[in-house]
Measured scan of single mutants.
Amino acid sequence: LQAFIKTLTGKTFTVEMEPSDTIENLKAKIQDKEGIPPDQQRLIFAGKQLEDGRTLSDYNIQKESTLHLVL
């Protein structure tokens, strides 16, 4: 599935991932794409901060969901 990552500066980019991917995997993909170390990334979806060990499906993240990236 493709999801949108929106930063506080208003920049939006897309990442490809599977519902079974962990938040940790997602942070690694963001690092590959944007060069931001995972330990500096905080991802917010539906008002909740996402925990590394959980999966996208745990948070009911669907295709074309928008996640907010806070540094």
Rank of each mutant, 00 (worst) to 15 (best):
I44Q: 06
T55L: 11
L8A: 14
K33T: 09
G47M: 03
T7R: 07
K63H: 15
T22D: 02
F45G: 02
N60H: 09
K6F: 06
T9W: 15
K27A: 01
Y59R: 01
I30N: 00
K6I: 15
P38M: 15
K11I: 09
I36D: 01
Q41R: 00
Q62W: 09
I36P: 03
G10L: 03
L26A: 01
D52N: 12
G35C: 04
F4W: 09
S57C: 04
N60Y: 07
K29I: 10
E18N: 13
V15M: 06
E64K: 11
K63T: 15
Q40A: 09
I44S: 10
Q62S: 13
I36C: 04
F45E: 01
K48N: 10
E18S: 14
T22S: 08
A28C: 07
E16L: 11
A3M: 15
Q49P: 11
Y59F: 04
F45K: 04
G53Y: 11
T7Y: 14
A46G: 11
Q40L: 10
E64M: 10
E16R: 06
Q49C: 11
K6C: 11
T55I: 08
Q2S: 10
L56R: 00
I36W: 14
G35N: 06
T55N: 06
T55S: 10
S57D: 09
R54C: 08
K29D: 01
T9N: 13
V15E: 01
L67Y: 03
K27M: 03
K29M: 08
T66R: 07
Q2Y: 13
F13A: 01
S57L: 12
T22W: 04
I36E: 01
R42L: 14
E34C: 14
I61E: 05
K33F: 09
Q41F: 14
L56K: 01
T12H: 08
F13L: 06
R42V: 15
S57E: 11
F4G: 03
A28H: 12
K33W: 07
Q41G: 02
M17H: 04
Q41P: 01
T55C: 05
N25E: 11
L1C: 05
I61F: 09
D39A: 12
D32C: 07
E64A: 10
E34V: 15
I5Y: 01
Q49I: 15
I44E: 09
K48S: 10
L26R: 00
D39N: 12
Q40W: 10
V15P: 00
F13N: 00
E34Y: 14
P19M: 13
F13S: 01
A46F: 10
P38N: 06
E64Y: 14
L69N: 00
T14Y: 12
P38G: 07
S20W: 14
K29H: 05
E34R: 09
F4E: 06
I44H: 11
P19W: 14
T14V: 14
P19N: 09
K33C: 05
L67P: 04
R42I: 15
V15T: 02
A46H: 14
K48H: 11
L71R: 06
P19D: 09
L26V: 06
P37V: 05
M17T: 06
D39T: 10
E16Y: 12
V70T: 09
V70D: 06
P37N: 06
L67K: 01
I23T: 04
H68T: 12
A3C: 15
S20C: 07
L67M: 10
